[in-house]
Design a protein around this nucleic acid. Sequence first.
DNA 1: ACGCGTGCCTGTTGGC
DNA 2: TGCCAACAGGCACGCG
Length: 280
Amino acid sequence: MPELPEVETVVRTLLPHIRQAVFDSVYLLRPSTLHPLSLPLESLSGLAINNVYRRAKLIVMDIGRESGSEGIPSFLILHLRMTGRIFTTEANREQGKHTRCIFDLKMPDLSKFRLFFDDARTFGQIIAATPAILKKWSFWRELGPEPLTLDTDTFISRLQGRRPIKICLMDQKVIAGVGNIYADEALFQAGISPMRQASSLSPEEAATMLQSIKNILNLSISQCGSSIRDYRDANGNAGAFQNSFLVYGRGGKKCKKCGNILQKTRLGGRSTVFCEHCQQ
DNA sequence: ACGCGTGCCTGTTGGC
DNA sequence: TGCCAACAGGCACGCG
């Protein structure tokens, strides 16, 4: 399940393969994979990929010529959601069972290759956008700050509302990029119960919470993310951080810190694992 | 306005 | 062994 560390890893492994590549034909194999606000993917033809980076859980490509113009996208943005995978492959590779979109690309030396967007569960989306489209896209517009560069005071000011802290951490409007795995892991490291009301955290607890989020995310990035089953980076390699999970997926097993049985519950419709003894 | 529950989607898993 | 319900969960959406 790609969250911030996985998307960061995909971007890092993807960039050296596709920077400076120019879009040729694009084959959209599943029309609903295209975001409703997107320009037609034919509009990509002839545009160069100038940069690739991550914003929240989104892969963002800066694309275009020297000067943009009306109806020409400046960004190609991909959301992997649950099972999305993006990878480069040889120019004659045929579509697979779960291939949703194929981009034909050409390098400055005229060599050709393909960029595949595969997605078994079809939640992933692609959007070719102008700055004006991004302004209309509420999800993009309302994204919260990046957690890795977030300061404590701003974090505290965003922990408003009477709802469980875990719901708050996964709300992309509060902070961007944290999902179910890293919310559970960060809450455990911080020693804070996922059910605590967000507004009940003391400034000290909030500071600990933010530091734990940064620790967990950075540690996972250093291990190329977590691979539960589907996730692979742009080179097809799995991450290793799943071996370091202390709570995620360990409901009913012993807490690695105190030995008590880890509790499993549902919060906001998502499975949530925590230690009653270690997390207050 | 805000918080919460549900649907989307399909491959995998676990229980009978 | 085979079948099927439950599960995985980010986000849009509708309800109260």
